[in-house]
């Protein structure tokens, strides 16, 4: 059961948001040379990835629209 819970967390949207979308967003910010008012690209990347992951976790969708 513990393994099942671990796997469930590992494949959760919030982990994917922080583990992949976060650093991906940071690299895109850097590549596009976007001027940031505060913080580093990774900080903003993790904020974007974390928020997207949270939305996907709560709503069950990465694109806001819920599957019927």
């Amino acid at each position: 059961m513990q393994i099942f819970n671990f796997v469930k967390v590992l494949f959760s949207p919030i982990v994917f948001g922080l583990g992949f979308i976060g650093p991906l967003s940071a690299e895109i910010i850097t590549a596009l040379e976007i001027a940031l008012p505060i913080g580093t690209p990774l900080y903003w990347g993790l904020l974007i990835g974390g928020l997207l992951g949270l939305m996907a976790q709560v709503r069950g969708s990465w694109i806001w629209v819920k599957p019927s």
Binding site: G19, F20, P23, I28
Partner: peptide, 17 residues
Amino acid sequence: IGVLFTMAWTGHAIEAA
């Protein structure tokens, strides 16, 4: 996801994507 995460956190997120 192991490959995606590892690539992403070693500076190769765009390549993995």
